[in-house]
Amino acid sequence: MGGLIRKIDRGGFFRAFGVGFLAPLLLLLADRLPGTARLRRYLRPPGAKPEKDFLKACIGCGQCANVCPNKCISLAGLEKGLGELATPVITARAQACILCMACTQVCPTGALSRLEPTEDGRKAVRMGTAVVSEEVCYSFAGRTCGVCYRACPLPGQAMKLGLYETPKVNAEHCVGCGLCEQACVHMPQAIRVIPANQLEERRAS
């Protein structure tokens, strides 16, 4: 027993430390990879903090994606850049959030603040805001559609209908779940959710 203090070679230690320190920084080169046009328009799960704080807190553990019963949360790969690797991403057109709030209940680091699956909880969500392309939308061309309205979890508040079921989004109440975007029968889509982080950027610029 004893003899726990082993002599270490200081020079070797620091040389190896330097190599170890610099090696991960080489990964920054991954950000410089050419090719994939990065799709910037994607949503964060409900309850997500503003993008900057969210990325500070999110450790990419995947618990939200694991408990999501809707399988709408996927984990980002390198296509979104190294900074967002393994962070949860919702592509609304493919699978939109049903606001069940399961992910907000499990987030260990507070990147998603806790919300309840109630009316109030749903209203507190700020994932983004839906925007209608009136030039594209069926209803605006006189072909009554209204599918997005029927998909909306807050009908009458977040979205109202006009003549021929033309959708009108109330940005104040729209939570940005993306169900309208997923439901839109027009291809290419006539309604899309602008993520909250991009709204922030737009307001800033």
Binding site: F17, P24, L27
Partner: peptide, 16 residues
Amino acid sequence: VSRGLAWGLLVGGLVL
């Protein structure tokens, strides 16, 4: 390799 490598990776990883 010296233990420094893993310590360096830890610090470098934190910086990254």
